[in-house]
C-alpha cells in the first residue's frame, strides 16, 4: 500500500513537472523543472528495484546533462523568446494524430487487463543475491561487453563532434 501511495505522489510530480517543462516561457525555468522531473524519475526507478540506474540517473542527467543545458543558456544570454507558438496546420494536424493515439492507448491500458509487476521479494531480478549493482555489473561486462565498448567509442565521437562544431571558425589571415 505504501508503495502505491508513493507511486501516486511521484506520478503526480512527474506530470506536473513535465507540463511545466514544455509550457514554461523561460528556458531556465524549463531546465530547472527538467531537473526536478529527472530526479523524481530516479525515485520511481528506486521504487521499481533498479537502484543503480536510479543513482546513474541522478549523477548523469541531473548532474551532468542539465548543467550543460544551464551552462549553454547562461552562455547565450538570451532574452525570453516571445511566447508565440509556430502552430501551422501541419503542426496542429500532427498534434491531433498524436493526441488520438495517446487517448486510444490510455483507454486501452486503463480498461484492459492488468499486467502485474513482480513482487519485491521475487528473485527474478537478482541473479546472485548480492544486490542490484553486482548483478548489473555481471550482465554488463559479460553479455553486453561489446555494446559497452561501442558506447565508449560513441562518447569519444560525440566529444570530438562537439568540439569541432562549437569551435569558433578560423579567422581570415590578412
Amino acid at each position: 500500500m505504501g508503495a502505491t501511495l508513493l507511486f501516486g505522489i511521484f506520478a503526480f510530480l512527474i506530470v506536473a513537472c513535465s507540463l511545466m517543462v514544455v509550457l514554461a516561457k523561460d528556458s531556465v525555468v524549463s531546465a530547472v523543472f527538467l531537473v526536478a522531473d529527472l530526479f523524481v524519475m530516479a525515485c520511481i526507478y528506486a521504487l521499481l528495484g533498479a537502484d543503480f540506474v536510479a543513482a546513474i540517473q541522478v549523477l548523469v542527467y541531473a548532474g551532468a546533462i542539465l548543467i550543460l543545458f544551464l551552462f549553454v543558456i547562461m552562455l547565450l544570454n538570451l532574452d525570453i523568446v516571445a511566447a508565440r507558438t509556430n502552430a501551422g496546420p501541419l503542426e496542429i494536424g500532427m498534434f491531433i494524430v498524436v493526441l488520438i493515439g495517446f487517448g486510444i492507448l490510455v483507454v486501452n491500458l486503463l480498461l484492459g487487463e492488468r499486467i502485474e509487476l513482480l513482487p519485491p521479494g521475487d528473485s527474478g531480478l537478482s541473479i546472485t543475491g548480492k544486490g542490484n549493482s553486482y548483478d548489473l555489473g555481471l550482465v554488463l561486462f559479460s553479455k553486453y561487453l561489446w555494446p559497452f565498448e561501442m558506447a565508449s567509442v560513441l562518447i569519444l565521437l560525440a566529444m570530438v563532434a562537439g568540439v569541432l562544431i562549437a569551435k569558433r571558425g578560423k579567422k581570415k589571415q590578412p
Binding site: A3, A11, V22, F95, V98, F102, V106, G112, P120
Partner: peptide, 21 residues
C-alpha cells in the same frame, strides 16, 4: 504495487509532453 498499465500511461504522458514541446 501498481500494475504495469499505470507505468505505461505515465510514460506515454511524458512522451506526449515531449512531442508537444
Amino acid at each position: 504495487m501498481v500494475p504495469f498499465n499505470y507505468i505505461i500511461v505515465l510514460s506515454a504522458f511524458m512522451f506526449f509532453c515531449g512531442v508537444f514541446g
